[in-house]
Structures are given as C-alpha cells and as structure tokens.
Design a protein around this nucleic acid. Structure first.
Lengths: 186, 186
DNA sequence: GACAAGAAACCGTCCAGACGGTATGTTTTT
DNA sequence: AAAAACATACCGTCTGGACGGTTTCTTGTC
C-alpha cells in the first residue's frame, strides 16, 4: 500500500470509490463506522487524499447525497418514460424503483445518509428541496391525495426495510406492490 | 448548581428527567448533541449521577425506548378501547395516535431514538420485537393488506415529519387522516 | 516534440477536542 | 451500619481536520 503516489491517477475514479466505500462501510460495519480514517483506508487512499476530494466530512456525505439522488432521478425518469398513463405516473415510478429487486442494491446505500439526513440541517434542507422539486414537477398528475398516500406508504416500507423490521414474504410484498399501483390509478 | 447533593432526593424523578432531557436535547440541538455530558448537565445532575441511573449510554437510550414505547402502547390501548368496530381497530388507533395534535409532542421525542434504532443492533432488535408483538396481538383484525398499507403510510408520514419535509397544510392533513381511516374499514 | 512551471492529486504526521467510561469520595436515605 | 444517590476528578481513545511535503499531470512556450 501507500503506493498510490506512484500509480496512475484517476481522480474521478477515486472520488467515486470513496463514495461507494462510504456507503458500503455503513452497511457492513454500521453507520457509526463511517469515519474519515475508515473510509479512506477502505478505499485505498490516505486520509489526506480523501480530504483533498472532500474538504470535510459533511462534504463527503453531501457528495454521496448528490450521487444517490442523481441515480434515483435517473431511475425514476426511466420508469416514467415507459408509462403511457399520465395520471399517477410519478407515483408509479416511485413504487417501481422501490420494489425492483436490484433497486434495493442502491437503496441500501441510503443508510448512512438517512442518519445524516436527520442530523445535519444542511442535508435535511437538500432533502426538502428534492421532495419539493419532484412535487412541483409532477403537480397535476401526482398531487391527488391517494397518490401522496401511496408514496408515503412506500416511504414507510422503505423505513421498515432500513430498520430490519419483520420482512413480509415475497407473495405479500408482490400483492402490496399491486395494490399500491392500483391506488395510483384511481 | 452542584447542590443536588443537599437537596431532597427523588431518584425516580431524576431518572425520568434524564430521559426527557435526552429527547428534548436531541430536538433542540440535534441528535449529535446527545452526549452523556450534555444530558447530565442539562438535567442538573453530574455525569456520575447519570451513570448511576444508566450504567452506559446504550442503557440510557434503551431506557428512553422503553419509556416511549410504554407511552405509545398506553395511547394505542386507549384509542382501541373506544373503537367498537373490531376490523382494523389497531390500525385506526395507530392513525389516531399519530395524528393527534399533542400526540406529536411525544412523537418528536423519537428523533434520537430513530438514529439509535438504525445504528444500534440491540435497539433494532427491540424495535423488531415491538412491531412483531403488535402484529401478533392484532392478527385477524389488522392483518389485511390494506391495513398494513395504511400503517406503512403513517410511518412514511411520520418520517416526513422527522425529516422536516414540506409539511402539508392542515386541511390536506385532515383529509389524509380521513382517507386512511376509511381504508382501514374496507 | 521538449521543457519549464504551475496546478492537481495524493501521502504521512500531528494535534486539539470531545466523548464514553472508571474510580473514588461524599451525602442522604433506609 | 449499609446501601442508595449522588459528586468530582481523571483517563484512554477516537475522530475530524490542519499542515507540509512529494509525485504526477497539464498547460503554455518555443
């Protein structure tokens, strides 16, 4: 190790690596283990290297937030593109992204962020804005009470996953998804 | 200060005070500020005093968990008692407790715990058990898919409150509650 | 294409503060 | 007198981050 000095430099790759490692670390060793030391080490970079890309810890989490919301937006847009029915389109995309099997592979990465989201006012504000933006963008098609209700239910499901609550069996899960989709069309 | 030595002793009151202060502190200064020093000081007790009641930090959070779930159980039981219709009774109590105006006064105290719930395996397990217990106790009356859906929606609402997401206006909120109650009766 | 020169990408060390927890004393209650 | 309910002092560790160096890349100039 410590040869990163001499190997070829891929700053963008390293940056991405740091973000992924941060999320991964939180999952495997708990969110408390996401320290600058641990992240940098697990990413094969020195702490100085980490602090070069992200001047402080909040900046690292902020980067992770941007990364994950971007991917989420992308996934949502993709799902919405394939949906012919305007009414409740966003809500259905919201459902689909949550329920897609590999989707959770990304969804799990939100663990650290969720904590940071509660703790850090700055990230709370960014989250507020994210929600608000999608609310505005899909006003008219997804403002119905039932649509909101469905999205809140998805959030609740997501939280239950995060907290490792008694997971329901696959069949119930599928039925739940169908029901949510149905309501989104009412 | 530091006169606690000489004033009358009410250990149970001090214990309660410590729990309340911990929750309150989290709300006002953020969950990160819930340290043994801060809590003990804000409660007018020395750190030694705090550690007498709760041998370590996890124990403090565990106490808070017990305290809040007890109150929650009590509130739920009360609401259920006043509900003549068996079907969805628990789910309606769940809704009512969340939507009651002063109910949130207690609900906000969950902030620190939520973080601890994600981080600490022990508390996650306790939460799992709490959910599971109520699921078992109300099997038959509240196992319907729609009932689950409603409860997940309430959780989502609760999370949104916690994250300070764009709060909906009182009218929408009331309508949402009505809708949830309606679904619980389907 | 060569080459200087500055910028960018890293490394390694050190530190100051915070935090959880221990150990031990003192007062109050029983 | 013994135990419970506190207080005081202290310690070890961890963590975020500052700092100054070293290596690689890029850019402008000829």
């Amino acid at each position: 190790m410590s040869q990163a000095h001499h190997r070829k430099k891929h700053p963008e790759a390293v940056r991405q690596q740091l973000l992924e490692v941060a999320a991964k670390l939180s999952l495997e060793k708990g969110p408390g283990s996401v320290t600058l030391d641990a992240v940098s080490q697990a990413a094969g970079v020195s702490k100085g290297g980490l602090l070069h890309h992200f001047p402080n810890k909040l900046s690292l989490l902020d980067g992770l937030f941007t990364d994950l919301t971007d991917k989420l937006d992308q996934a949502l847009a993709e799902k919405m593109r394939d949906d012919p029915e305007p009414k409740g389109r966003f809500t259905r995309a919201y459902i689909a992204v949550f329920f897609q099997p590999e989707g959770m592979a990304d969804g799990e990465k939100w663990q650290v962020l969720t904590i940071a989201l509660i703790s850090e006012p700055h990230l709370r504000e960014r989250w507020r804005q994210w929600v608000d933006r999608h609310l505005q963008e899909n006003i008219g098609t997804d403002s119905a009470l039932d649509a909101m209700l469905v999205r809140y239910a998805v959030d609740g499901l997501w939280l239950a996953d995060l907290l490792g609550s008694p997971t329901m069996d696959a069949a119930t899960r599928a039925a739940m998804m169908d029901r949510l989709l149905a309501i989104s069309r009412l």
